[in-house]
């Protein structure tokens, strides 16, 4: 059995730091580079890779991710490409979590998708537009395959929702730290820390914080109170308006900065 997200998060906790979780979409800027980019994340200190599956109507994504997934789809990216990416990430030594809007899974068939993902080394799914209330079939497919299922909590979540959502999660909980779509933000906000502590009050699962982090300093700041720091748009943006080679170099440098950030987080 390959290493799951829970074990990685446990190891990071033992090291006295938060985990670094990096998001990149498959097929951006092209399929080959996107897979090389995910491997670059792992080689430069990223603990878990969030493998994005491009979707035509990404309603919780901001301009950077929209631009990237639109380019990936225009370049012919198919759902099956995600499994090449998860294999590569697994081979590089990190658990791949696939981030996908629900219709893509539904269309392929929930059980079929789960089987293929498990066989391709996938650790589980992050589902931004699937709430536990609608997830009965995914709950049973993930039980059967041993895949992690990560649902979101948000600053607007009531204590009842926090309990309901975290009870359904396996692996970790995704705390969407600010209300809004994905994208780089200059300050990560006090709401994030409050959300993490309210979430911890109802679950023992690790709580990872996403939406808005772009620098090592911010990663350190969030890593001081969260179990994992999720970075997306800032990583994606390293490929805008440069050659793939230059993008990979920029990506490697930013990943090292973010990894150093989470490493110092708890030391302060």
């Amino acid at each position: 059995m390959s290493v799951g997200t829970a074990q990685v998060l446990e190891r990071c906790r033992a090291e006295g730091r938060a985990a670094l979780i990096g998001y990149l979409p498959v097929g951006f800027p092209d399929l080959e580079t996107s897979i090389a980019a995910m491997v670059t994340l792992v080689e430069n200190g990223c603990d878990i890779v969030e493998v994005g599956l491009p979707y035509s109507d990404p309603v919780i994504d901001g301009p950077a991710n929209q631009r990237a997934v639109a380019q990936a789809l225009a370049g012919g990216t198919r759902v099956a490409d995600v499994f090449d990416a998860t294999r590569a990430v697994r081979a590089a030594g990190a658990p791949p979590m696939v981030m996908t809007y629900w219709n893509l899974v539904l269309r392929r068939g929930i059980d079929r998708f789960a089987d293929e993902l498990r066989d391709a080394g996938g650790a589980g799914l992050i589902t931004p537009d699937l709430i536990p209330d609608e997830a009965a079939d995914w709950m049973s497919a993930s039980e059967r395959t041993g895949l992690d299922r990560v649902f979101l909590v948000a600053p607007s979540s009531t204590p009842e929702r926090l309990a309901r959502v975290t009870e359904a999660c396996r692996g970790f909980v995704y705390a969407a730290a600010v209300m809004g779509v994905t994208g780089v933000r200059s300050s990560v906000g006090a709401a994030a820390e409050d959300l993490v502590s309210r979430t911890r009050a109802v679950t023992d699962l690790p709580v990872c914080v996403g939406l808005g982090v772009s620098t090592g300093a911010q990663a350190a700041q969030v890593g001081a109170f969260a179990d994992g720091v999720i970075v997306g748009s800032a990583l994606v943006s390293t490929f805008f308006d440069v050659t793939p080679r230059e993008g990979l170099d920029k990506l490697g440098a930013l990943t090292r900065e973010l990894a150093a950030g989470v490493a110092e987080g708890r030391a302060r």
Binding site: I60, I131, S157
Partner: peptide
């Protein structure tokens, strides 16, 4: 109700 959790409340 297939929506992001932030909208549920």
């Amino acid at each position: 109700r297939y929506v992001p959790e932030p909208l549920v409340p």
